[in-house]
Write a protein that binds this DNA or RNA. Structure first.
Lengths: 205, 205
DNA sequence: GGATTAATTCACTATTCGTTGAATTCCTGA
DNA sequence: TCAGGAATTCAACGAATAGTGAATTAATCC
């Protein structure tokens, strides 16, 4: 059944308790990213971490707690992201945002974002986090630096583009968007995002 | 517990067998849309339809079959959509697509699209359907009528925008995108989609 | 109007999951 | 060096799930 059983851990205390915790966090991010909150099982996560399922309860108080720490907790400084993205001035916002997000998402750290999107279905908190982080924090702050009209709408529109880009590249894996290199996507998407943030919207009424 | 128990159906055959089938389909679309494939339980669906859970097996061969019929099966003619959208010529593509999709999605029949997006997480087939329908069928055919360069990339880019718009408006419910009227969103989004389909992409290399 | 058949419900099973508590083994500090 | 505690495993429980098969009732056909 299970290909090449793991080397059969002995019982009892093992050196360095911290390893288990981080191993669980990494495995959790990966499994939540693949299967979402419901699809991921504690047994699978623990198995991939090479640890007993009971450790999830011991260290995180249960699946819920592990999800909160592994996926809901933002692993980087949001203010730093806003700063990075706004550094080039309002005219470079689109380009900077697309490049920054794709670079982070492509890297391992961004796995938690995929896990987030994958879990939006069954975990309302995941949706809340997506909204809060991506829109309320990032885009609202960024748009403010550009001093455009209708800032809330612009923030929302920007979010649609980035969420859609993430969905297509990481979740739905739609080619050639999924396999394109970052600079190609920057060139293709940045102008559209730029229009949302600082361009003319030509709204009716 | 359950507020005001349903009027306690009698056993045995009841008139007009077709009602149960369609009641199940409608309930399934609603529940799958709310909870995704895994989150939705056969008991919940049957309960909302006012029938016994066993009917799901009887009529659709199980949860899987019900999902296929209710969510994966496209409730309208794809060729008709392509025709509608391309009717105004290449320059009206963005506008027509945004308006057509939002109108359909806002309507009750489009509930299945929300169910689809919600189920993309846990059902690989749902993802496959999303890819096939939205990208391969719709966008690829549409882009072809415009005779642009890089048609596959353009189709994919267009998909990112529409998926993101659907996610923001229906799944994540990001305001003001979620509450805006259709024409506002058409004015805001259509130019961006138009650039993806027929505009200058300025790709590197 | 009686036999047949289709539609429906009910009770049950097997499985899977998250969680728990006890048992076990190893580190650590005095 | 030895006692206490911390990290880990193990076995098992209770809840919830999808699916199955027999029993039951009503419509349909001749």
């Amino acid at each position: 059944m299970t290909t090449a059983e793991e080397p059969a851990r002995r019982r009892g205390r093992r050196p360095a308790g911290e390893d288990t915790k981080t191993a669980l966090l990494e495995a959790a991010r990966a499994v939540f990213a693949e299967s979402g909150y419901d699809g991921a099982t504690v047994r699978t996560i623990a198995g991939r971490a090479g640890v007993d399922p009971a450790m999830v309860n011991h260290w995180f108080g249960g699946k819920e707690g592990l999800f909160a720490k592994a996926v809901l907790h933002v692993p980087f400084d949001l203010n730093e992201v806003v700063e990075t993205v706004t550094a080039g001035g309002p005219d470079k916002l689109g380009e900077n945002i697309v490049r920054t997000f794709l670079t982070r998402w492509d890297g391992a750290g961004g796995e938690s974002f995929v896990a987030l999107i994958r879990s939006v279905t069954t975990k309302p908190e995941a949706m809340q986090t997506l909204r809060t982080i991506l829109v309320n924090r990032i885009f609202t702050d960024v748009v403010r630096t550009a001093d455009s009209d209708r800032p809330e709408l612009r923030a929302g529109l920007g979010a649609t583009q980035m969420i859609g880009l993430g969905m297509a590249r990481y979740v739905a894996r739609i080619d050639p968007v999924a396999s394109a290199d970052i600079e190609t996507l920057v060139a293709a998407v940045a102008p559209n995002l730029q229009r949302y943030l600082t361009g003319e919207l030509d709204l009716p009424g």
